[in-house]
Simulated assay, not measured.
Amino acid sequence: MKNILVINTGSSSFKFQLIQMPAEKVLASGLVERIGQQNSEIHFTSEGYSGKQEQDVPNHSVALKAVTNLLMDPEKGVIKNASDITAIGHRVVHGGTTFSETTVINDEVKQEIKSLFSLAPLHNPPNLTGIEVAEEVFPNAKQVAVFDTAFHSSIPAKAYKYAIPNKLTEENDIRLYGFHGTSHKYVSEQAIEKLGKSDSKIISVHLGNGCSITAVENGKSVDHSMGFTPLSGLIMGTRSGDIDPSVIFHLVDKLGYSLKEVNEILTKKSGMLGLTGFSDLRDIETEAQKGNRECKLALEMNAYRIKKYIGSYVAAMNGLDLLVFTAGIGENSSTMRNLICENMDFLGIELDPSKNDIRSKENRIISSESSKVKVMVIPTNEELEIARQVDKLV
Rank of each mutant, 00 (worst) to 15 (best):
G274A: 09
T335I: 15
D391G: 07
F99R: 11
K268F: 04
S46T: 04
D199E: 13
K220M: 07
E132N: 15
I265N: 10
L323I: 03
Y177A: 08
P245A: 12
K161H: 11
D242V: 08
S246V: 05
M236A: 04
V92K: 05
N263Y: 03
M72C: 09
E385A: 14
G10E: 03
R175C: 08
I378F: 06
S370G: 03
L231S: 15
I306G: 14
T97M: 07
E287P: 04
E261H: 11
I202Y: 01
T97V: 11
K268H: 10
G48H: 14
Q289M: 10
E362D: 15
L168M: 11
F325Q: 01
H206R: 05
I203E: 03
V93W: 09
E33H: 11
V394C: 15
L70N: 02
H94I: 05
G77F: 02
S115D: 09
M1F: 13
F16G: 14
S188K: 00
H206I: 02
L384I: 10
A150H: 07
S188D: 01
T380V: 08
I105P: 13
G233L: 08
A134L: 12
I265W: 07
K197I: 01
E33I: 02
T229Y: 04
D173W: 02
K308E: 07
H206C: 02
P125Q: 08
I243N: 12
D391L: 08
N140G: 12
Y304I: 03
G36M: 14
M236G: 06
P22V: 04
E342F: 10
I358H: 08
E261P: 13
I88D: 00
L168I: 10
L128W: 03
D242T: 07
